[in-house]
Design a protein around this nucleic acid. Structure first.
Ligand SMILES: NC(=O)c1ccc[n+]([C@@H]2O[C@H](COP(=O)([O-])OP(=O)(O)OC[C@H]3O[C@@H](n4cnc5c(N)ncnc54)[C@H](O)[C@@H]3O)[C@@H](O)[C@H]2O)c1
Ligand SMILES: NC(=O)c1ccc[n+]([C@@H]2O[C@H](COP(=O)([O-])OP(=O)(O)OC[C@H]3O[C@@H](n4cnc5c(N)ncnc54)[C@H](O)[C@@H]3O)[C@@H](O)[C@H]2O)c1
Lengths: 230, 230
DNA sequence: AGGCGCTTGTGAAGACGTGCACAAATCGCG
DNA sequence: CGCGATTTGTGCACGTCTTCACAAGCGCCT
């Protein structure tokens, strides 16, 4: 389930605040989801709630971390240490959430050798050797789109089966390899769509207006995320 | 539809390659989706394909850009010019996809006044004045989680109705305001989950193994993204 | 002009996710 | 010990999304 990480984060917050137990309602609130949905999700983990009381925060954290495979700290390789790569490499939020940036790679000789928060940037050709040493579990691609497919191929070649891709392009990978994409421009465009829809609706309250207005008003808007009402 | 931006990107690629028309199959391939799904999506835009030929690339681009509200270049305000904020501010991919970073804000006096790719960082208290001048459409939050809710409130106060949030926390906003969240750690954790699942499955081919194995094997894995097989 | 191959648009079926509503279970308290 | 308050776990119904499959439409070639 894609919501598990969200629950986990909320649980960690609760744990730091001193809570020992949470009701499904409380946790659902903190995670921004429906309480029934949350209970259904958690019931799939093997039922660790006590009726009348709620869920044991610590136990639930352990459960979710186990299911997510966070009991072992996974090694991440970051390829492409440019604008975005620098930010990622210097981000401490990964370490606190179960990951360890194990190596940085770039193709630019100017960047090779540079040290970023304790790690030295290596040439991408060294990937096979480093992968063998570090047992990389996840590869992150932060190169321009033109280079992304080649980098993906290289990652797959050294045995990486999970890739997080920041380049705005579709990657083709063998079956068994998971790819997730983060494209900020797409996020903005989805927001822009909503803006446009809102604007059209307020401008033409009941007329129906242009074909586009009817379209955007009548169509389902399900992007896997939605606004959280007050 | 959340897939429209993906189609748009693929279409721009095709246009640059000199294609004048595309079949649904071709475009679906380029965007990484099923062709039937793509046709159904496009049919909602008002049917601009020619049977036996395909879709006119240029026309389709115009259509999608109109629906997404990209005919006007929307102004984006970026709040929090730290590690990540710098990368975002210096990213030229926004400009080419219909957006204009109109202003940068930070609360740290040390950062106020700094110039990043032609824009001067302003203090977040100036937001009301600048928003009035620039008619900000979208706000991007790249502050620590602790400050995110306050910043969101400030953005809403000046009339922003679309927010892209990079901080790992749930934002509460009034109805009518859209929030999208990008949490990199969550992306990694989802990948980690798949890694764990794959490992469990290969380790215990048919036994069923632990409760967790049965769980992860039997449960639906739908995270809004999936691997693209070869 | 006619036929043929290709492509779109869509009906229908199935899978999936969501949320309500309620029974079962547990705790605390009198 | 029993009762009520509280909260979990889930059956069920509903709406949405996905995919297949195919008829209708279009252009090209003969
Ligand atoms: N900067 C952002 O905020 C941002 C936002 C969204 C998306 N992106 C995307 O992230 C990617 C990187 O963006 P950026 O701003 O960091 O670009 P950048 O040009 O600053 O950095 C790219 C880096 O990748 C390296 N590189 C190029 N080819 C390589 C190869 N084959 N192997 C290894 N390294 C290689 C380059 O040497 C460079 O250091 C781009 O695809 C961009 O579209 C960036
Ligand atoms: N750096 C990354 O790669 C990365 C990755 C994923 C998520 N994030 C998230 O993005 C956010 C920013 O990360 P970062 O690495 O840039 O952190 P950072 O500490 O480098 O930058 C945060 C910036 O926000 C500013 N700020 C703090 N409070 C503010 C306020 N009230 N108003 C305006 N500005 C304020 C700070 O002065 C600072 O410049 C964090 O929530 C982080 O979890 C970052």
């Amino acid at each position: 389930m894609a919501r598990l990480p969200e629950y986990l984060r909320a649980l960690h917050n609760l744990a730091e605040t001193g809570h020992e137990t949470v009701s499904s309602e409380g946790l659902a609130n903190a995670a921004g989801v429906n309480s029934a949905k949350l209970r259904k999700d958690l019931s799939q983990l093997g039922s660790y709630g006590t009726r009348g009381v709620g869920y044991d925060v610590g136990l639930l954290i352990d459960q979710i971390e186990y299911v997510l495979g966070l009991t072992q700290r996974r090694a991440v390789a970051l390829v492409g240490v440019g604008n975005l790569g620098h930010a990622l490499a210097g981000y401490d939020g990964f370490a606190s959430r179960g990951f360890r940036i194990a190596a940085l790679f770039d193709a630019d000789q100017e960047r090779v050798g540079e040290e970023i928060s304790g790690l030295v940037v290596r040439h991408v050709d060294e990937l096979p050797r480093v992968a063998a040493e570090e047992s990389i579990a996840i590869g992150v691609i932060a190169t321009p789109a033109a280079a992304a497919q080649r980098v993906a191929d290289q990652l797959v070649a050294v045995g990486v089966t999970s890739i997080l891709n920041f380049a705005p392009c579709v990657l083709t990978v063998p079956e068994g390899v998971d790819v997730r994409k983060v494209d900020l421009a797409i996020e903005l465009q989805i927001l822009s769509f909503h803006e446009h829809r809102k604007a059209s609706l307020t401008a033409l309250p009941a007329t129906g207006g242009s074909a586009l207005t009817a379209l955007s008003g009548g169509l389902a808007v399900s992007e896997g995320q939605e606004a959280i009402g007050t």
